[in-house]
Computed example of a mutant assay.
Amino acid sequence: MLMGEYEHTLDPKGRVIFPAKLREDLGDNFIIAKGLDNCLFVYPPAQWQRLQDSINALPFSKASALQRFFFSGASEAISDKQGRVLIPANLRQYAGLDKDIIIVGASVRAEIWDKTKWQEQSARLTAETIENVMDELGF
């Protein structure tokens, strides 16, 4: 399971040292794609295949927009010996990644956020919002 919050910095080439704890679950090769709320989603290959299969099983009228969104900008990431991963320019631009970033574990995927956007997103999560969802889940 991917979990935790990690603060990192992009180098001038757009590389980041990916957290070792997340690399353990992701492996040396994983997929980086556009995510929701202008972050990036990071999937291990098996989970990416599940997402792909689920989208492709939808009727074309529903699948086409999702296929374009997720697959057009997706990129296979390969970590080097130092654990660095290159985030392609198109994905950095989509997520507004410049220098300071946050990488978070989100169960079956990780997410890469611009640090300021992450702080704004986190501030929107109120105790009331979380309580309502927990009630829906029966907790």
Results as ranks from 00 to 15, higher is better:
1 M>P: 04
4 G>W: 08
4 G>Y: 07
5 E>P: 04
5 E>R: 09
6 Y>H: 01
8 H>C: 08
8 H>F: 02
11 D>G: 08
11 D>K: 11
12 P>L: 11
12 P>K: 02
13 K>G: 01
13 K>C: 01
14 G>C: 07
16 V>M: 00
18 F>I: 00
18 F>Q: 03
19 P>G: 01
21 K>P: 10
21 K>C: 12
21 K>R: 15
22 L>G: 09
23 R>M: 10
23 R>Y: 15
25 D>A: 14
28 D>M: 15
29 N>I: 14
30 F>Q: 01
31 I>K: 07
31 I>P: 02
33 A>N: 09
33 A>W: 08
34 K>E: 05
34 K>M: 14
34 K>S: 15
35 G>V: 04
36 L>V: 15
36 L>S: 13
36 L>T: 08
38 N>A: 12
38 N>H: 09
41 F>P: 11
42 V>I: 14
44 P>M: 10
44 P>V: 06
44 P>N: 14
45 P>R: 10
47 Q>K: 13
47 Q>T: 12
49 Q>Y: 06
50 R>E: 09
50 R>S: 12
51 L>M: 07
54 S>E: 14
54 S>R: 06
55 I>P: 03
56 N>Q: 02
56 N>P: 15
56 N>Y: 04
56 N>R: 11
57 A>E: 15
58 L>F: 10
60 F>T: 04
60 F>K: 05
60 F>W: 00
61 S>K: 13
61 S>C: 14
62 K>W: 14
64 S>I: 09
65 A>M: 12
65 A>V: 12
66 L>V: 04
67 Q>Y: 13
68 R>L: 01
69 F>N: 03
70 F>P: 00
73 G>M: 13
74 A>P: 08
76 E>I: 11
76 E>P: 01
79 S>I: 11
81 K>P: 10
81 K>G: 04
84 R>K: 06
84 R>S: 01
84 R>V: 02
85 V>W: 08
85 V>Q: 02
85 V>N: 04
85 V>K: 04
87 I>S: 03
87 I>D: 03
93 Q>A: 11
94 Y>E: 06
94 Y>T: 03
95 A>M: 00
96 G>K: 11
97 L>Y: 12
98 D>P: 06
98 D>L: 06
99 K>A: 02
99 K>Q: 11
101 I>K: 01
105 G>P: 13
105 G>D: 08
105 G>F: 10
108 V>Y: 11
108 V>M: 08
109 R>D: 07
109 R>P: 08
111 E>T: 14
113 W>R: 04
113 W>M: 07
116 T>K: 13
123 A>K: 15
125 L>A: 03
126 T>N: 06
127 A>S: 12
127 A>W: 01
128 E>A: 13
129 T>A: 09
132 N>T: 12
132 N>R: 09
133 V>P: 00
133 V>G: 02
134 M>S: 15
135 D>F: 14
136 E>T: 05
136 E>C: 00
136 E>K: 05
137 L>N: 05
138 G>W: 04
138 G>Q: 04
138 G>V: 10
139 F>D: 05
139 F>H: 11
